[in-house]
Measured scan of single mutants.
Amino acid sequence: KELVLVLYDYQEKSPRELTVKKGDILTLLNSTNKDWWKIEVNGRQGFVPAAYLKKL
């Protein structure tokens, strides 16, 4: 499993997105899109802007 660090808080703006908090370490599911990465948070899957995340 690949992990990502959340660099900035992000509030979901659609049902396909997820809310994340700065400092969270989460599972990366897909990073093929350069702008939006798919991650998992508490069993939910969704997208967060790639600029808000850093691969560990």
Rank of each mutant, 00 (worst) to 15 (best):
G43F: 06
D9T: 06
K1E: 13
L56G: 02
L18I: 09
D35T: 12
E12D: 07
D9W: 03
Y52A: 11
L5M: 13
W36R: 04
W37M: 02
G23L: 02
D9N: 11
A50R: 11
T27W: 14
I25F: 05
K13Y: 04
K54D: 05
Q45G: 09
P15K: 08
N42E: 11
V48T: 02
Y10M: 01
P49K: 04
A51W: 10
A51Y: 10
V6E: 00
N33C: 09
L53E: 00
L28I: 05
L28C: 07
S31L: 04
D24M: 14
V6P: 00
D24G: 05
V48C: 05
A51C: 12
A50Y: 02
G46R: 03
Y8M: 11
K21W: 14
V48G: 01
V20W: 01
K13A: 13
K13D: 07
N42I: 07
D35I: 14
V4D: 00
Q11R: 11
E17S: 08
L5H: 04
K22W: 03
D24V: 05
S14Y: 07
I25E: 03
D24F: 07
L3M: 12
D35H: 14
I39M: 06
G46F: 08
R16F: 15
S14M: 07
K21M: 10
L3W: 15
K1S: 12
V4C: 09
P15N: 15
W36P: 01
Q45T: 14
G43Y: 06
D35L: 14
D24T: 10
V41S: 14
T32H: 13
F47G: 02
E12Y: 07
V6N: 00
Y8V: 12
V4W: 04
T27F: 13
R16M: 15
V6K: 00
S14P: 10
E17G: 12
L26F: 12
V41L: 14
R44S: 07
V20N: 00
K13N: 11
K34H: 13
R44L: 12
W37Y: 06
K22V: 06
K55N: 07
D9Y: 04
I25W: 03
P49N: 03
K1I: 14
K34R: 10
T32L: 10
K22R: 14
L3I: 08
I39E: 00
V41R: 15
S31H: 13
K38I: 14
K13V: 08
I25V: 12
R44P: 01
L3F: 15
Y10S: 01
L5W: 06
I25Q: 04
R16Q: 14
T27S: 09
D35G: 10
I39R: 00
L18G: 03
P15V: 11
L7R: 05
R44H: 12
E2W: 11
K55S: 07
K22Y: 05
T27K: 10
T27R: 13
T27G: 06
P49A: 03
L18T: 06
L56S: 03
R16V: 12
